[in-house]
Structures are given as C-alpha cells and as structure tokens.
Write a protein that binds this DNA or RNA. Structure first.
Lengths: 69, 69
DNA sequence: ACTTTTTTACTGTTATAACAGTAAAATAAT
DNA sequence: ATTATTTTACTGTTATAACAGTAAAAAAGT
C-alpha cells in the first residue's frame, strides 16, 4: 500500500504533460524542492502540497477498505 | 477529488474498530493531536503520518489517472 | 563537441506540523 | 443525576518541511 512508487507515477505524468519540475511546482503553487522531494519518494511531505501536485496532473486519489469497497 | 471527507472515513473506521483517538494514535505511532487533526480534515498533515493511521485501519490508497486507468 | 536545459544536491532561513500537557465540552456508561 | 470516558480546543516547545538561492551533475538539443 505504501511501497507503491508514487514518485515515479508523478514523474511519468509530468513528463507526459511536457512539464519541468519547476513548471509543475509553479502550477501547483509549491516550491521546486517540494516537487523534487515528492518524486524522490520523500514521505514527510505535506498532504496539501502532494494533492496540489496531483491535481495539476489529473491524478485522482481513492481510499478503499474492506468495509466501503 | 480533494473535497472528499477523509476525516469522516477515518473516524468511522476507527469507531468500527472500537478504538479511541488516543489508542489509534499509539498504534499508528503518532500523537493524539495528529489523529484529531486528520479527523478534522486538516490538510497540512504529513503524508507519512496519514499513511500510518490508514495502515492501522486497513484503508488502502489508490491513485488513478486517465492514463493508467 | 558545444550549448542549453533540466535535474539533483546542498545550504541557511522561516514557517509551521507534531507533540505532550492541560482543561473544558461532549458523550457514554452506571 | 453522577461518574467515567472521550473528544475538542488551547497552550508552549521542538523538530523539521518548505522555500529560494546556488552550483554541480545529468540530459537534451544544436
């Protein structure tokens, strides 16, 4: 669940969108270091910053449990 | 995507697991304030802390995009 | 090969998340 | 209704994420 390489997913989508780290950072309203950290799988980033990046790249988040499945 | 009430989901699962905020916090290895903040939809929590809580509650995270769908 | 762009990596500073402690509401239990 | 438990809310302190700046390494373009 947690070992999933979210950084690679984001990098891949960023590339396909033709964006540099800096451009993505600007669009998401975060610093370039934050985008770099996220792609490098840093786990201590703030949720709102990650979500801001995901929003730009049109990546949606879903939460699944044995209950609400 | 972002307006989803994750706090309510977590609170619901915690209740169904018969855990108090403090117990969940201890199990997840975070402070009680963090669990409180997460349930109150605070968006600036750290990713690793949120994931630690989700792990205890058996809630999985999925990332979906128009590409990898 | 050279130039330009991008990424990686490190810095010092600033803002703030995380935390334990406390106490007052709110809720549940007897 | 009392008591006990849990949740909410507020503190001050500490740890660290975020940030811009810089520069070197890597990649892409000419």
């Amino acid at each position: 669940m947690d070992d999933f390489d979210l950084g690679a997913l984001i990098k891949d989508h960023r590339k396909k969108a033709g964006l540099t780290q800096l451009e993505l950072a600007d669009l998401a309203g975060v610093g370039k270091t934050t985008v770099f950290d996220i792609e490098k799988k840093k786990k201590t980033v703030r949720l709102n910053n990650l979500f801001a990046v995901l929003r730009v790249l049109n990546i949606k988040v879903e939460f699944k449990s044995p209950l609400n499945k």
